[in-house]
Amino acid sequence: MGTVLQYLDQEPFRFLLSVGAILFLVLNLAAVFTMAERKTSAYIQLRYGPNRVGPRGLLQPAADVFKLFSKENLSPSRADLWIFLGAPIAMFIPAALVWLVVPFAPNAVIADLNVAIVFFIAVTSIGALGLIMAGYGSRSTFSLLGAMRGAAQMISYEVPLILSLLGVIMLSGSLSLVDVVNAQGGGFWHWYFLPQLPMFIVFYIAGIAEARRVPFDLPEGESEIVGGFMVEYSGMTWGLIQAAEFASMGLISAITATLFLGGWQPPIEALDFGNFNWIWFGLKTALLVFTFQWIRWSLPRLRMDQLMDFGWKILVPICLIWLFVTAGLMLLFPSVF
């Protein structure tokens, strides 16, 4: 047995195993999150939620997947078919690809890129292109409106998202997520959300906007433009868009946990489980995903001009001010940092 385990540690096998595990995880996230979302919303609104398929309704996502596979795939007759069908693919691939650089536990990361943070920003912003492709390729009024809103949201919230990471990079002195997590070791008072509290809040808000969740779901706007950019999709192409949304929600939570909440680091050193520390990572990510849903079912949607004002007039100045505060404190008290 021992020799088999050693064999699995060797390079090509390590890669294949961890890729298999992460692909399995990412592809199941959508199913788990739809279920979590429907249950959370049901309990917030004093309902039961899905409770018919399987014990306590737990098999509902599986039934949904089968249903999606058996749905007819419609496309508008005047749509630009290549762009129309390419859009869900262009949205799904970036949302799944970034999981490559997320450290799940000590030594459990597929590729420890030394530019992981830049990789995260670069690849997630490709998802916005998929959204614009979907809206434009459908050749539909609601879709076009949704795509225009998506573009406006992207140019407003990409900047605070990028600027809010500067504090973490300054403190850890590295762009690698593994280094960032290692630098936060030794108890929860070492996690970056304390010295970087404004940046943490800005990053999380910008992350919600990046994942296009309520209150920033204007491209979708189901009560006004009935689905927005995805109004013409059906069947599995629609399923891919949904999977991409849920995967990016999980991704934003996982990256927030990694950068600001210590990743897999335990809150106090006595609770260090060694290689089982992925439990901490999972707990933090699950908490942030729950916060996503909590916000979604508590807040109303923003108006378009309020949304852009908020991004440019509040979030960007906060980032710039806190950049100077962090830099000044690091300069004055070099022994603390």
Partner: peptide, 12 residues
């Protein structure tokens, strides 16, 4: 991650 259980040190 099953893999983390198997590993002592990160491979180069």
């Amino acid at each position: 991650m099953t893999l983390a259980l198997l590993q002592g040190a990160a491979p180069e």
